[in-house]
Write a protein that binds this DNA or RNA. Structure first.
Length: 823
RNA sequence: GCGGAUGUGGCGGAAUUGGCAGACGCACCAGACUUAGGAUCUGGCGGGUAACACCGUGGGGGUUCGAGUCCCUUCAUCCGCACCA
């Protein structure tokens, strides 16, 4: 046959056809159910990698499948286009970040187009464009207006060699990702978003997300880290000062033998003043301050501390206990100070043993020694309170409640909840980001830029410092401005926003990407939001997904959005591996999507990547596997070509089906059922594809039939192409046309199975003896249990096996098997 | 240390509700076609055996007529968090 599968011609042809006919452009249509299908938009690094291909192939199957099932599908794509690599490229190669980014976006867009994904490109957005970041700035202003954006001095990661602040994610193993210098801590004025105000809702509303992987929800729960306890004040002996402490173990308050404050605690200098320990304390604080984040907080580091010379008073029993400062107490959790109960907290125990501090047992477990001196480790289990005055005899649980109640009654302290979650530091001392819309005026102080003055444009003409320091600090025309309030000379904020801010609301923007006066049109988000299916890498399980949820809740609160959660269903796809590890330049195991698409075509690339593994799991790249996918598409091609004469004739309509034809029809409908269930119910594209392969195999074998039934073949082939089309759309289009259909397969309805075709006259039943398969029989599918029992005893093999045995029991699983229990 | 996941042929994987372990694909072996084959088609393919028997889902134990699937225990690998009071 001269008609060969020429993917290059076919793929180009249909990509142009789809584009010319605007197939994937969508608008709101109240008459149809909507479906918002979204893949995490990429950073425009310049080239697609296999992880992208996998992500977008998965998303495209969902989009095409839903469209064929009658949904009005929104499937947009854009660019998370601000960020450090562009700036590094500028420093290294002298290319302006905007040019570098534009070039990359263009390149990746054309690569995406060769994949044949059903994007509505009219909705393309890039977060680095003023028409977008204008509204990122608007988001900032709204948060500011509602008291959720604030500035405070904070310890940040500082790279002494690059002379700049680094984001947490830019610190790799305690060093700068760019120059590997050891990162230091530095106190700087920084902008924060008050995500902690939403901690409880972010936690509670995880319950509203049954469509999210449990794993991601657990990670978020742990990250939020809610813990219930109480907070109370410890008075400083001989002073009016008090130090609040937080504990989850109020029941152990009578076991307090010392107190610990974080070295950074603001009262440390005060209380140690005029004590013999003052100098030692000062030195210790200095030393700890200069440690890197890793050296400071790692569990590997041995606990150490110094006595401050001061004493605190336990409000429950009036006892005086020494106040220490130690490296194991952190300033930014709880109150930065703890009551130490070495008998019942392992960390306190370790510390107490090291510095010979007393250990007093106040919870008596079954075998807990009463004397702290006999303990070998802290006792953290349940038990009865002892040495605790009137509270003795309480269990841990009732003791906690009783002590808190007592504290509240006597004005000592109160029940309190702490979160591990911290406010979101959004300042970046970088050029390539959305400028923070704030002006500093000597008279008016901090003044937000009025909405009508947005966007605060990034100046184009800047000079990049080799040190990495933000060029914005040197652009007078940028930072010299007038106060929006009083008109006097003022200075503009030169920090830009973390790129996670840009990606916290882009899914809203996709609903109405061309709005110029507002971030999005409420009618559009009311129609499209929330995203029905969100797909991306699990590496965003916490940061991006938490920030996006926070923004959505905030926009809901200020009545801009009608949904409280942005993503109804979440699919976290696994990584693409080669030789057992993640593809990376340093390992030299990178497979380029461009090469694969050039050699085998997009249909093959997509098919392989979806077939090789279920989406959530890691996928091992295999060149041989790609060959296999390519061969399969070639087989389908030949199959259709071979049958072309048959299906173009109209013979055989309504004719009686022989056994072979009935089997083929059964397989067709069974496959439709299976593929539909696999895609819709559980996103198992690998098994869906294997089912399509089975149908194809059966159709291939049926070619040998001397009297084929054209109607049954036609139905089988059409179903095959329809089911293949979400996975490998180009070849499906071409073969659809080749089999005499007008128009595009993309617009066709998903095939429906006919339950009556799945009814069989006879079914096979397995016969087991003592749980082992010994024979199989065909029985009429309407046989009752008694008939099956009779029949299975009569087969030769079963009769032989049962020689000399007594049948004790028979278990019949209708339609499946019979198990004969014989001894 | 805590939390989570995974473990099935030579390989990727399937078995969806406790009911035929190994679908589908790759690799491999044999055959057909052919000047040729790294194309295509047909057949085979967990171990074991002449054929049965028998053994087999990381290891050990248990529940059950029946376990890859449920329970207990243990090992290995990967991921996340990591002094969170």
């Amino acid at each position: 046959m001269e008609n060969k599968y020429d993917f290059k011609v076919i793929e180009t042809k249909w990509q142009h056809y789809w584009e010319e006919h605007g197939f994937y452009k969508v608008s709101e249509d109240p008459g149809r159910p909507k479906y918002y299908d979204l893949e995490m938009f990429p950073y425009p690094s310049g080239n697609l990698h296999m992880g992208h291909v996998r992500n977008y192939a998965i998303g495209d199957v969902v989009a095409r499948f839903k469209a064929m099932n009658g949904f009005n599908v929104l499937h947009p794509m854009g660019w998370d286009a601000f960020g450090l690599p562009a700036e590094n490229a500028a420093i290294k190669n002298g290319i302006h970040p905007s040019i570098w980014t534009d070039t990359n976006m263009e390149n990746m867009k054309s690569q995406l187009k060769t994949m044949g994904i059903s994007y509505d490109w009219d909705r393309e957005i890039a977060t680095c464009k003023p028409d977008y970041y204008k509204f990122t700035q608007w988001m900032f202003l709204k948060l500011y207006e509602h008291g959720l954006a604030y500035k405070k001095k904070s310890a940040v990661n500082w790279c002494p060699s690059c002379q700049t602040v680094l984001a947490n994610e830019q610190v790799v193993d305690g060093g700068c990702e760019r120059c590997e210098a050891v990162v230091e801590k530095k106190q700087l004025e920084q902008w924060f978003f008050k995500i902690t105000d939403y901690a409880q809702r972010l936690l509670d509303d995880l319950e509203m997300l049954p469509g999210w992987p449990e794993k991601v929800k657990i990670m978020q729960r742990n990250w939020i880290g809610r813990s219930e306890g109480c907070q109370f004040d410890m008075k400083i002996k001989g002073s009016d000062q008090v130090v609040p402490v937080f504990t989850t173990r109020a029941d152990t308050v009578f076991g307090v033998t010392y107190m610990v404050m974080a070295p950074e605690h603001p009262l440390v200098a005060d209380i140690s003043q005029n004590t013999p320990q003052a100098q030692e304390v000062k030195e210790f604080v200095e030393r700890i301050k200069n440690l890197s984040e890793i050296a400071r907080t790692s569990t590997e580091v041995e606990k150490e501390g110094v006595f401050t010379g001061a004493y605190a008073i336990n409000p429950m029993n009036g006892e005086e206990v020494p106040i220490w400062i130690a490296n194991y107490v952190l300033m930014d959790y709880g109150t930065g100070a703890i009551m130490a109960v070495p008998a019942h907290d392992q960390r306190d125990f370790d510390f107490a043993r090291k510095y010979n501090l007393p250990i007093r047992v106040v919870i008596q477990g079954n075998d807990t020694p009463l004397d702290g001196a006999d303990l070998t480790e802290a006792y953290v289990g349940d038990g009865k309170m002892v040495n605790s005055g009137t509270f003795d005899g309480n269990s841990v649980e009732s003791g906690i409640a009783a002590v808190i109640a007592y504290m509240e009654e006597h004005g000592i302290g109160q029940g309190s909840i702490n979160y591990r979650l911290r406010d979101w530091l959004i300042s970046r001392q970088r050029y390539w980001g959305a400028p923070i819309p704030i002006v500093y005026c000597n008279d008016c102080g901090m003044v937000p830029v009025p909405e009508e003055d947005l966007p605060v444009l990034l100046p184009e003409d800047v000079e990049f410092k080799p040190s990495g320091e933000s060029p914005l600090n040197y652009v007078r025309s940028f930072f010299e401005t007038n106060c929006p309030n009083c008109g006097k000379e003022a200075r503009r904020e030169t920090d830009t926003m973390d790129t996670f801010v840009c990606s916290s609301w882009y899914f809203d923007r996709f609903c109405s990407p061309h709005e110029s006066e507002q971030p999005f049109d409420k009618a559009a988000t009311d129609y499209w939001m929330p995203v029905d299916q969100y797909i991306g890498g699990v590496e965003h399980a916490i940061l991006h997904l938490m920030y996006a949820r926070f923004f959505t809740k905030f926009l809901y609160d200020i009545k801009w959005l009608s949904c409280q959660e942005p993503f109804t269903n979440l699919l976290t796809q696994g990584m693409v591996l080669k030789d057992g590890s993640k593809m990376s330049k340093s390992k030299g195991n990178v497979v380029s999507p461009e090469d694969i698409i050039n050699t085998y075509g997009a249909d093959t690339a997509r098919l392989f990547i979806l077939f090789a593994s279920p989406p959530e799991r890691d996928l091992e790249w295999s060149d041989a596997g790609v060959e296999g996918a390519y061969r399969f598409l070639n087989r389908v091609w030949r199959l259709v070509v071979d049958y072309a004469h048959l299906i173009n004739s109209q013979d055989g309509e309504g004719a009686e089906l022989d056994e072979a034809a009935r089997q083929l029809r059964f397989k067709t409908h069974a496959t439709i059922k299976k593929v539909t269930d696999d895609i819709e119910g559980r996103f198992n594209f690998n098994t869906a594809i294997s089912a399509i392969m089975e149908l194809s195999n059966m159709l291939g074998a049926y070619r040998d039939n001397p009297q084929p039934n054209p109607a049954v073949v036609k139905e089988a082939l059409e179903s095959l192409l329809l089911m293949l089309s979400p996975f490998s759309p180009h070849i499906a289009e071409e073969l659809w046309q080749l089999t005499g259909h007008e128009g595009s397969i993309t617009l066709m309805a998903w095939p429906q199975y006919d339950p009556s075709a799945l009814v069989q006259d006879e079914i096979e039943m397995v016969i087991q003896i003592n749980g082992k398969v010994r024979d199989r029989i065909m029985v009429p599918s309407d046989s009752n249990e008694e008939e099956v029992r009779q029949q299975c005893m009569q087969t030769e093999r079963i009769a032989a096996q049962l020689q000399g045995k007594t049948v004790q029991k028979m278990i019949v699983v209708p339609g499946k098997l019979v198990n004969i229990v014989a001894r």
